[in-house]
Design a binder for these strands. Structure first.
Lengths: 170, 170
DNA sequence: ATGGGTGCAAAACCTTTGCATGTAG
DNA sequence: CTACATGCAAAGGTTTTGCACCCAT
């Protein structure tokens, strides 16, 4: 994952500020720091991981309660999606444009890869319709094992990874 | 959902007993009552709902701790799958044979429908392979709104349903 | 009789909330 | 200034655990 170009970052921050103003919400140090961190760092983070990273990155850090509130706000704003990967806590993901994708999760180390399959995408609204639903959203998660894991009975990324979010290896 | 034929029930209970014996586990009143209830009643239940239903069905009921333990055991045994539908608590589902299916969840009332799409099923292992994974499992959840809901801005099943598990309407 | 299973209550988690304080507008 | 945002600590909800007691084997 390449570093976020400065211009993209600025765009995103602007987009967020605009949203806040439009919604009569205040532009606070906490909101901007959380947003900036999310815009720059890797995906599939938890509130826990955000709190930790922000504590190291900035002086006083930001309380969990506030992070929970800001993350919810950003979900409302359509800038984050929420995931349930069957792990203990919720994961969030920044939506840069609208480019949707699904996930493959390693059952051993928790590593998360992304993919899009246009055929599957096309089939889903049809299925929903057939059942009398209008499709609003979906989540497709594949659970598997790395090839190395299958061979050695242990994923090479284990320990190192165990989804320390930020460890987005490709 | 038709009532479970008695013969099926017996088969399932036998299957469970066999598993317990094979694993050097004891056949207890609690384990058999939980299993029987699961085999007979509807799907997508929570530990909470199981506890409630068992309290009404049997005399002393069964403690939550024990139910959690039995449910985990049955997941291990491959007789249940665990789901995260983005709701607060985990849902479980009995696997009668191996007939897999995916889910459509109503965003308003939480009603859960099932479907299988063979095309999607076929595509998934290919995708996993392309990413260097061996597919072990997957979950595909479609989130939408009933047609009635779209019209009236309210799902006809609301209140009545709100996923009181057991309310498996088709 | 004995080792595993159960029930209870407590602990461990994750997430939300009430309230006093701080601060953007 | 004033209303909204934050931080803290407490509460809420789900799941797990320690331990004494119970009961299949």
């Amino acid at each position: 994952m390449q570093p976020t170009p400065a211009s993209d970052l600025q765009n995103r921050l602007d987009r967020f500020e605009t949203y806040l103003k439009k919604s009569d919400m205040k532009i606070t140090r906490q909101r901007m720091q959380v947003a900036e961190h999310i815009f720059c760092s890797s995906n599939h983070f938890t509130v826990e991981s955000l709190a930790d990273e922000l504590k190291h990155k900035y002086r006083p850090g930001i309380s969990r309660a506030t992070i929970y509130r800001i993350v919810s706000l950003m979900v409302e704003a359509g800038m984050l999606t929420e995931h349930n990967f069957g792990q203990n806590s919720r994961r969030y993901e920044f939506i840069p444009g609208q480019k949707h994708h699904d996930h493959i999760i390693c059952l051993d180390c928790g590593r998360i890869d992304e993919f899009v399959d246009s055929e599957i995408e096309k089939l889903q609204p049809k299925i929903a319709k057939k059942h009398g639903f209008t499709l609003e959203d979906h989540s497709l998660n594949l659970y598997g094992r790395c090839v190395e894991l299958a061979r050695k009975n242990r994923c090479p990324h284990h320990d190192a990874a165990v989804q320390t979010p930020g460890a987005q290896m490709v």
